[in-house]
Structure formats: C-alpha cells, structure tokens
Amino acid sequence: MSGGVDSSVAAFLLQSQGYDVHAVYMHNWEARDAGGRACTSEQDWQDVQAVCRHLGIASQNVQRVDFVKDYWTDVFEPTLQDYAAGRTPNPDIACNSYIKFGKLFDRFADQFDWIATGHYARIELDTDGNPRLLKAVDPSKDQTYFLHQVSPSILRQTLFPVGDLYKSRVKEIAAEIGLPTASKKESMGICFVGKRKQFGEFLEEYLEQKSGRFVTLDGSVKGEHRGLSYFTVGQCARLPGEAEKWYVAKKDMLTGDITVVNGWYHPALLARSAIVSSWNWIPQAPTTLSSSPLRAQAAHRYHESLSGCSVYSIPSTNDHLEVRYAIEFDVPQRAVAEGQWIVLYDGDVCLGGGTIVDVGPSVFQLEQSEKKRRSNMTHECPPYFIFK
C-alpha cells in the first residue's frame, strides 16, 4: 500500500472478496532537499496506517519495509548512468521489476499466497495456467506499460483489484466507505526528484553536465545549452530569441552539440526501426518468431498511440550474447530514443517489451541517402538515357 486511493481501495475490494489482507508499505527514498523531504514518505506511511485502521486491518499485519539501499543500487544509480550516457530511462519500470515485484515479492513469497497492488491492469490465466497481462478497463489509467518487465512467474501470483474499474468508480468507492484518503491527490512524477525541484535541477546534484551548442542540420549555431542531460530526443529546445519552436533531434555525447530542427514532425525526428534488448516476454516468446516476424502493436512511450509493427529476432553473437529484436514500424514514429522501452500489444494483451539500444536512421537521413543515390545514378548514366 502506498497511501494513495488506488491501493487503499484495492485492499478494501480484497477484503470484500474474503481475502485475509496484510498491508506492506515500501520505503524507498530518504534524501532531503532545501525545502523538506524529496518524497512524502512519512505522510504516506501515516496514511497507510490510517486506512488500515479504518478497514480493520490489525496493526501487527501492517508493515513498513526499507528498500532504500536496493532502490539506490537497482533503480537510481542505473538511471543516472543512463542519463550520463545520453539515454532516456524510465525508473518507474525498473522500480516495478526490481523492487516492488522483485525484492518485495522475494521477501514475502513464503508467507503469503498473493501480492496485490493498486495498479490499473488485469491478469488472466490461459488454459495452461500461464498469466496474460491485459490492459485496464479504464484506458486513460492503464499501467501495463510500466509492468511489462515483471516476470510471468510473479504475475501468476499477482492481483490487480482495481484493474476492472474506472478511476471515477475507484474514487466513488473510497468516498462511499469513508476512507481517510478519499480526497487525497494522485501522486505524479518521479518520487526522488521531489515536488519543489525541476528535473534538471535535480540532475545537477548528481551528474557533471556537458555543455555545448544548439546546431541545425546544416551546421548553423542557434545558441548554447548548459548540459546534455537536460534534453531528450523530441523535446522542445526553447531557444532564446526564437519565435518558432525547435526540437531536439540528436545529442552528440562527444562534442556536446545538440542538433535541433524546426517542426514537431520534422523528418529528422521520425524513425522507422529500432533495436531492442533486455526483453521480457509475457508469458513466453512466440514459437514462430525464429522463422517469421511477429505482427503486433508497439508503444515506445507511456500513453503513446499504438503503432503497427513487425518484430524480428536477431540471433545472439560473440558481441551480443543475449537475443535482441528488431522492431520495424508500419508508420515512422516520432522521438524514438535509446533507453526508452518498447512495449508490444496484441489488442488488450501486453506481450512484453524491452529497452531500445539503437535507433534506425531517421526519415530525413533516408531521404538524403535516396537523393544522393539518385544523383549518383544520374551522373553515371550516358546522355541518351537521361534524355530518352
């Protein structure tokens, strides 16, 4: 339980279904900023205890467990390393797979039959007892994107009580049963950044920034920036003195230059393919993938519109021991960046996903290559062919 409305209602629903509910609150972060705690940890813990008292969960069945060191090692440090390398990580995915459905599950696996959370997702078992991860009934709250790295063996013992409900109904239930947190606002953003900080300010405390220039595709200098880590592909660069909006198309980790383009859907922002590793299939990889591509729908950002795609298996080599996958999008996708997670779907079923380790050439690069190819063909052809 997090102290929020969703996990509190989840506990109530489980009680209503006859489960013997025990509550666990995870304490993952301790840092303070100048204005107070970076996270609302203490208040959240008090809210968990208040909800449990209201629901009649005995105090001896309410625990606060400390995962600060694990979170730092498995989530926070890798996130910093990704930003330092110019990638675009998602710590919420790592927290779910390594901490909540990793360390937490391992600690209590021998004591309880199920782990339940307030995530908006659903689970069904197929005829062989394998779990299928399904989108939530409420499409605006679906969180399968953040859960795609959870092991199928753990999903088999997981319950998502609010996954069949709309958020509006969850709030109604909280008010109907008089939960002390019924009117609590939903937490947003990354916990360790804190409410009083911008993300860039937070990164300054942990990463040495590499300053550089904003440059256009033709090499013109548009200004200077304070650090590569402040920007990700597709983000508005907010160039001073520019009336039009410019967007980040590329980051050069060696020179510090950031290539910017004018236009939300500039061809330099569009990619047709990506290479993905660290893949987790739910419940297992398709048996036909080695001989033919898999057709699916893909999302490379949370709440991104799904795009049709073909998935190809790339066999392991001496340089890459793990199996990787090539994703080819039916329609070029905007702002595909290394470090993001591509998640596959078949309708409402989440098939799993992995992290992007390489992005294919942009539409702009492909167009330039095609122009060069045609130009070379023209110069090489005899005159009679050109004018025939």
Rank of each mutant, 00 (worst) to 15 (best):
V24L: 11
A38V: 09
E42W: 11
V9T: 14
D20H: 02
Y19T: 00
V9L: 15
Q43M: 07
E30W: 07
W45N: 05
W45A: 13
Y19L: 00
V24H: 09
G36Q: 02
T40D: 14
Y19D: 00
S16E: 12
Q17G: 08
A10Y: 02
C39F: 05
T40L: 06
N28G: 07
D6Y: 07
A11K: 05
M26E: 04
F12V: 08
Q15D: 11
D44T: 15
Y25I: 07
A31T: 04
S8P: 04
Q17D: 15
L13M: 06
Q15W: 05
A34K: 13
Y19G: 03
A23H: 13
Q15L: 15
L14Q: 04
G35N: 15
D44M: 14
V24F: 13
W29L: 03
V21F: 01
E30K: 14
S41G: 14
R37N: 13
M26F: 00
S7L: 06
V21G: 02
N28S: 14
S8C: 08
D33F: 06
D44I: 11
S7H: 05
F12T: 09
D20V: 00
A31G: 03
A34P: 06
S7C: 10
S16G: 11
Y19E: 02
D44H: 15
S41D: 12
A31F: 04
E42G: 13
D33A: 09
W29C: 02
